[in-house]
Every structure is written in structure tokens, then in C-alpha cells.
């Protein structure tokens, strides 16, 4: 692991009932990198995020964060992890404030109530703080879900198709929050099919295909139009 590496993924392999989701996947990220990963469905993108998030164990290979092997102290690592997935991860029978206070308390945030209020203001839900999450509209739930993922001010943020299904307001808000986190040198890995948004935010861009990293380059070396062609060719190659 080089001195400036924050995340090191080496030799990851994962198989689900005979289907190889990841094949000897390796890459490194420095602190503050924003990696956007593109790839066709079934390329192993979500599996990679789930392994880094310690939700799934790899068959072989390892993940090191800040020099520490995830196997050794995953509880400590998860204090600094944020994950925005397809699922809201919210308790319908708890209010917006209760959901955030509960999450903040789990992460050991010093003043969970103050942090929850701060996040509710950021996602423009402070007027609805005492409403049950189950009564929220889809857009409000999405905003609350984003706030929940940021409750511990994560050093490493994983985003699995974060813009899919978001309403316009929630998408704008998420875009702004991601830019703020990028400026604050948080390390971010985003999996998406959205070429425009993915390229706009990334400092590094990769294509995952067939469980392997088919492409990984710094954003400044990539021409958006040429990359779109490459991405389409990769998808077509996968599906043909």
C-alpha cells in the first residue's frame, strides 16, 4: 500500500451459486478520490460496494482502509462509512428526527440531537421533523435517507445508483451534498449508469465488466464523448 493510498482493494473474488460476480478485482484510491464506476447490470458493481461495506464477505482477496485490514476491525471502520443504497433504511414507525437520532447514536455521534437537526435542515425537512417517516412522500423519504447516510460525517461514502428514482429536488440536493463532500476530501465510490452526472463529479472513472475492472483512468485524461463510446462498446460486448 503506497503512502497516500486510503483504500486498497486487492484480488477480490466473489461467486454466487456458480456465477462469478468479481474476478480478481484490484485497485487503489487516495484520500479524497471520487471514483465513479460504470458497468452493465450484473457486472459486480453492487457486490463490490457490499464487500467494502462489510455486508458481504469476499471468497478471496482483501480490502484495506487507511492501512487497516477490514477483517480486523470492521466495527471501527463502519464508524467512518456512509452507504446510500436503493433502500431507504428508515423505520416507518419512527419520526424523521427519531430515525436520525437513532442512527447518530448508533454511530456514537457526540450530540445526536444536534446532528439530526443539522441534517434535517440540510435536506429541508426541519418542518417535518416530528412526522413519521412512513407518512413521507417518496421524495421526502429519499432526502431523509440521504441525511441518514451522512449522519456520521463519513470519511468513505459508497453510493449504489444514488440518482435512480430520485425526484428533481432530491437529485439536486444529493448532487450539492456530494460536491461539498468532495471539496472536504471525503473518499467516494459511486456506482451509476448516469454518464453525465458520473463524469461531472468524478476524479477517477472506471468501467466494471464481467467482474473485472475493464477501465480505470483519472477523469482529466478522459474525453466524455470518447468515453461514452467506450462504455457503450463495453455494454454491447457484455450483452452480445
Amino acid at each position: 500500500m503506497a503512502a497516500d493510498d486510503y483504500l486498497e482493494v486487492s484480488g477480490l473474488c466473489k461467486e454466487y451459486e456458480g456465477c462469478r460476480a468479481l474476478r480478481d478485482l484490484s485497485f487503489r484510491l487516495a484520500r479524497g478520490d471520487f471514483l465513479t464506476l460504470f458497468g452493465p447490470n450484473g457486472a459486480g458493481k453492487s457486490t463490490l460496494l457490499r464487500i467494502i461495506a462489510t455486508l458481504t464477505a469476499p471468497d478471496s482477496g482483501r480490502v484495506r482502509v487507511d492501512g487497516a485490514d477490514l477483517e480486523d476491525g470492521s466495527e471501527e471502520f463502519r464508524k467512518r462509512l456512509g452507504f446510500i443504497s436503493h433502500h431507504a433504511l428508515l423505520y416507518d414507525q419512527m419520526s424523521a428526527l427519531e430515525n436520525l437520532v437513532f442512527s447518530a447514536s448508533l454511530y456514537g455521534v457526540a450530540d445526536p440531537g444536534a446532528r439530526a437537526e443539522e441534517l434535517l435542515a440540510q435536506v429541508d425537512l426541519q418542518l417535518h421533523r416530528h412526522r413519521l417517516a412512513g407518512t413521507f412522500s417518496r421524495g421526502m423519504r429519499q432526502r431523509l435517507s440521504i441525511a441518514r447516510a451522512l449522519v456520521n460525517d463519513p470519511d468513505l461514502l459508497l453510493l449504489d445508483e444514488p440518482f435512480t428514482g430520485l425526484d428533481r429536488q432530491a437529485a439536486l440536493l444529493l448532487g450539492e451534498l456530494l460536491l461539498v463532500l468532495k471539496e472536504r476530501r471525503r473518499t467516494i465510490i459511486m456506482v451509476t449508469h448516469d454518464l453525465d452526472r458520473g463524469l461531472a463529479m468524478a476524479s477517477r472513472v472506471g468501467i466494471l465488466a464481467g467482474g473485472r475492472l475493464a477501465f480505470l483512468e483519472p477523469r482529466h485524461r478522459i474525453d466524455a464523448a470518447a468515453f461514452a463510446g467506450l462504455y457503450l462498446a463495453t455494454i454491447n460486448g457484455e450483452t452480445s
Binding site: 455486508l55 433504511l89 428508515l90
Partner: peptide
């Protein structure tokens, strides 16, 4: 049951709770 709604179990497993 309560952890199943909105995949809250995943939320707990993502937290530092062992």
C-alpha cells in the same frame, strides 16, 4: 419484522453495531 421494512437490518449492519 421491523428490521425487514425498508431493509433496516442492512442499516443496522452498516452501523458500528457488531
Amino acid at each position: 419484522d421491523r428490521e425487514k421494512e425498508n431493509h433496516c437490518l442492512e442499516g443496522l449492519l452498516l452501523s458500528p453495531l457488531s
